[in-house]
C-alpha cells in the first residue's frame, strides 16, 4: 500500500545542507503494524512527516495506494492527509478550548462533503476507547492516558488507511501506556495499517515488523510471524 523508493531529504539551513535521509526504500502492505526505531537524529521523525504528507522529500517517489504523491499541490495533499492519514502525537495535540467530542470531530472541518453521520461516528469511537461519559469535558480535565485515547479516536474518525503514531506512549506512565498499546493492537487487528515511532523494544514488540534507521539509512527490517 505504501511504496517509498529512493526517498532523500536534505534540510537547507543558513546555507548549510544537512542530509537527513539517504535513499530510503520501504514497501508497507495493508494491515501491517510497523515499528520505526533507531537512535535520536536518525531521521525517524522526518520519515514520519514525509509519510504523513506534512513534509516533501527532496528526491524519491512516494506512492500511497498506487498514487504518486510527490507532485501534488498543497490542496490535494491536504485532502489526502484528511481522508487517508490519521495522526497520533506524543504530546496528544488536543485543542484545549473545545470539548472532547469536538476534538474528535475536528478532521471533518476539512472533509467535503461533511459526513451526515459525523457525530455518530465520533461518539461510537469515543465509546470504543471508553470515554463515552467524558465527551463533553474539556481535554485538560482528562488524564494523559485519556487524552491520548481521545487523540486516537480523532485519528480514526475519518477511517484513514494509515495511522501514524509518533511515540504515542512517550509521555505516559506504564499503566496508561499499556492501555494505549492495547488499543493499537485492537486497531491492528481490525486490519488498519499502523506506523509507530518508538524508542522502546517492549513497545516495538507489539508490531508485526520493526524497521530500524541509522544515520538516515535503513539498518534493519525484520518481519515477525503473527
Amino acid at each position: 500500500m505504501i511504496e517509498l523508493s529512493g526517498i532523500e531529504k536534505t534540510y537547507h539551513t543558513g546555507g548549510v545542507d544537512t542530509p537527513v535521509l539517504h535513499g530510503i526504500n520501504i514497501s508497507i502492505e495493508e494491515g501491517e503494524f510497523v515499528a520505526l526505531m533507531g537512535p535520536s537524529g536518525t531521521g525517524k521523525s522526518t520519515l514520519m512527516n514525509i509519510l504523513g504528507l506534512l513534509d516533501r522529500p527532496t528526491a524519491g517517489v512516494y506512492k500511497l495506494a498506487g498514487q504518486d504523491l510527490t507532485k501534488l499541490d498543497d490542496n490535494k495533499l491536504s485532502t489526502i492527509r484528511n481522508k487517508r492519514v490519521g495522526f497520533v502525537f506524543q504530546l496528544f495535540h488536543l485543542l484545549p478550548r473545545v470539548s472532547v467530542l469536538q476534538n474528535v470531530l475536528l478532521p471533518f472541518l476539512y472533509t467535503d462533503p461533511y459526513p451526515t453521520d459525523a457525530r455518530d461516528r465520533a461518539q461510537s469511537l469515543l465509546k470504543g476507547v471508553g470515554l463515552q461519559d467524558r465527551m463533553y469535558f474539556k481535554p485538560n480535565a482528562l488524564s494523559g492516558g485519556q487524552q491520548q485515547r481521545v487523540a486516537i479516536a480523532r485519528a480514526l474518525v475519518n477511517e484513514p488507511a494509515l495511522i501514524l503514531a509518533d511515540e504515542p506512549t512517550g509521555n505516559l506512565d506504564s499503566v496508561a501506556s499499556q492501555e494505549i498499546l492495547e488499543i493499537f493492537d485492537r486497531i491492528h487487528a481490525q486490519g488498519r495499517t499502523i506506523v509507530m515511532v518508538t524508542h522502546e523494544a517492549e513497545i516495538a514488540a507489539h508490531a508485526s515488523r520493526v524497521i530500524t534507521l541509522k544515520d538516515g539509512c535503513i539498518a534493519s527490517d525484520e518481519k515477525r510471524g503473527s
Binding site: G52, L54, D74, N75, L77, S78, T79, R81, N82, K83, F87, H93, L95, L106, P107, L109, Y110, T111, R154, N158
Partner: peptide, 16 residues
C-alpha cells in the same frame, strides 16, 4: 502555532 500545526495535520490546506 501548535493549533495551526495540528489543523494542518488533520487536513487543513494553506487556504483553510
Amino acid at each position: 502555532i501548535p493549533e495551526i500545526g495540528l489543523k494542518r495535520a488533520l487536513g487543513a490546506s494553506q487556504h483553510d
